[in-house]
């Protein structure tokens, strides 16, 4: 019978780590060993931080963002432009836009996109709250920053339709050649979109 080389608690930790994106069992073992060797500098602070986040995590009732307060820090920020709401598919998209520091607006997280095969209907998305927010007099523009996919565009068209009664301008992100993109390597669709959306230079 094979003897256990490590205790069940450590084994459990390795299994939990191996479920994280980018980590397999082998990398999880390395991570756990690394943490154990740095107990005071990493293991204990990490454990405390995880517990703290788990206890205080909240979904913003206004925009759907993930934060430790409700409303989230984006919604209560007085320096943000109240007239624009940027609609994103997921919290990771919101974080990406914030990282780029290109938006100073408020956000709205849909929590996914309409998908025929996955059976995701408008009721499964955070659309009702978006309509309520769009009807507030201060809001003048809804920017649909959804991914340029079939599902993303289907969702964008649907939202544009249902916002028809609200007195807001609906815009979407531009499509075309990415920074550093080479024409030779671009697909036909991106090239066509870039040609159609060309601007005066």
């Amino acid at each position: 019978m094979a003897r256990a080389a490590i205790g069940s608690e450590i084994e459990k930790l390795i299994r939990l780590f191996s479920g994280l994106p980018g980590l397999g069992l082998r990398s999880a073992r390395r991570v756990v060993l690394y943490l154990i060797k740095r107990e005071e500098q990493l293991l204990r602070p990490l454990s405390r931080a995880l517990e703290m986040v788990a206890d205080s995590i909240k979904i913003c009732s206004c925009c759907g963002n993930i934060d430790t307060t409700d409303p989230c820090c984006v919604c209560i920020d007085p320096k943000r432009d109240l007239s624009v709401i940027c609609v994103v598919e997921d919290v990771s998209d919101l974080w990406a836009l914030e990282r780029a520091r290109v938006m100073n607006s408020h956000y709205h997280v849909l929590g996914g996109v309409l998908s025929a095969l996955d059976g995701i209907s408008p009721h499964d998305l955070n659309i009702k709250r978006l309509i309520e927010r769009a009807c507030v007099p201060e809001v003048q523009e809804i920017l649909l920053a959804v991914n340029s996919t079939v599902e993303g565009h289907t969702t964008a068209h649907y939202i544009t339709d249902i916002l028809g009664d609200c007195n807001v301008r609906v815009s979407r992100l531009a499509q075309g050649i990415p920074v550093g993109g080479e024409l030779d390597y671009l697909d036909d669709g991106t090239l066509a979109a870039a040609i159609n959306a060309r601007t005066i230079f």
Binding site: V150, T154, H157, D187, G189
Partner: peptide, 21 residues
């Protein structure tokens, strides 16, 4: 690549979803 050709037409996109479903 039909998808990019249909992306600006809401009815066609919906129809594509219906067909695939």
């Amino acid at each position: 690549l039909y998808a990019s050709e249909l992306m600006n037409c809401p009815l066609a996109l919906l129809a594509l979803n219906v067909m695939n479903e």
